[in-house]
C-alpha cells in the first residue's frame, strides 16, 4: 500500500522512543544536537542511562529550571544543562579518550545522508562559500561502539537520505549500525540494508520507493 504520507509513519517523538527502547540499562550514551536530544526523554522506566557530553560532563541531567541556568554548565550544543548526583567533570582530552578509546556505548546522531554501507554525511553539504564546521562528529563516529542515526527518511524536497553512495562530504566511512526514520528502522549489515521494522501504514514497496538504495527484508 502506498499511503498518504501525512498519515503514515512515526512522528519524531515516536522515532525517539524507538531509539530509546534499544538503549540498554547501564549504557553510556552520547546524544547529538537537535532531534537526538529527544531520546533522553523517552528512556523506559527502570533503566539507568548515563549521558556524556563531549565538552566535559558525564552524568548530564535535564535542562535547569528557569533562573537556575549556569553559563559554565552547558552541553555540546552550548545550551544550559544540569549535572545529576554522581556526575563528573573532566577536560577535553579525557572526554575524547572516552569517545575515541571506545568507552562510550552508543551515540545517536542526525544525518544529511547515510549510505547502504553505513557511510555517514552529517557535517557539511559541501556548498561553496559555506563555513565548514565539524565539531566532535568525526570523533564520535570513529570511536563510539554503536552508532544510531535518527533522521527523516527523505529530505524536505523529497529526495532520499538513504542512498547507495553519499554525495555530501563524509563524516565517517562504514560507521552507522542502525537507522531510525519516520518510516522504518533499518540495520546496516555486511549484506546491505535490512528492514528491521516498518512504521504503521508503510509497505515494503513504499519504503523501497522512498529509499535510494536496495532494501532487504529479514
Amino acid at each position: 500500500m502506498v499511503g498518504n504520507d501525512k498519515k503514515t509513519g512515526w512522528n519524531i517523538h515516536e522515532m525517539a522512543q524507538k531509539v530509546a527502547h534499544d538503549i540498554p540499562d547501564g549504557a553510556y550514551v552520547n546524544l547529538g544536537i537537535g532531534i537526538p536530544e529527544l531520546v533522553a526523554g523517552e528512556v523506559p522506566e527502570g533503566r539507568e542511562v548515563i549521558y556524556h557530553t563531549e565538552n566535559g560532563l558525564l552524568g548530564m541531567g535535564p535542562v535547569p529550571d528557569s533562573g537556575q541556568e549556569d553559563p559554565e554548565l552547558i552541553n555540546a550544543g552550548k545550551k544550559c544543562v544540569t549535572a545529576i548526583p554522581g556526575a563528573c567533570y573532566f577536560h577535553h582530552a579525557d572526554s575524547f579518550t572516552m569517545i575515541r578509546g571506545r568507552h562510550i556505548d552508543i551515540c545517536v546522531l542526525g544525518a544529511l545522508q547515510v549510505s547502504e554501507r553505513g557511510d555517514l554525511a552529517n557535517w557539511s553539504t559541501g556548498e561553496e562559500g559555506a563555513i565548514p564546521a565539524v565539531g566532535g562528529a568525526m570523533d564520535l563516529v570513529a570511536g563510539v561502539k554503536t552508532i544510531y542515526v535518527i533522521s527523516k527518511h527523505v529530505t524536505k524536497s523529497g529526495d532520499p537520505k538513504i542512498v547507495e553512495q553519499c554525495s555530501f562530504p563524509l563524516t565517517g566511512k562504514g560507521v552507522v549500525n542502525r537507522i531510525y526514520t519516520d518510516l522504518a528502522v533499518l540495520d546496516v549489515t555486511g549484506d546491505g540494508l535490512l528492514v528491521r521494522e516498518m512504521a504503521p501504514g508503510v509497505s515494503f514497496d513504499h519504503l523501497q520507493q522512498k529509499t535510494g538504495a536496495r532494501l532487504n527484508q529479514y
Binding site: 563531549e54 565548514p132 570511536g143
Partner: peptide, 15 residues
C-alpha cells in the same frame, strides 16, 4: 585562514 580540525583530534594534538 582556517584550519578545521575534528574536536577530539584538536584536543589530542594539544595533549
Amino acid at each position: 585562514e582556517l584550519e578545521l580540525v575534528p574536536q577530539g583530534t584538536l584536543a589530542e594534538r594539544i595533549r
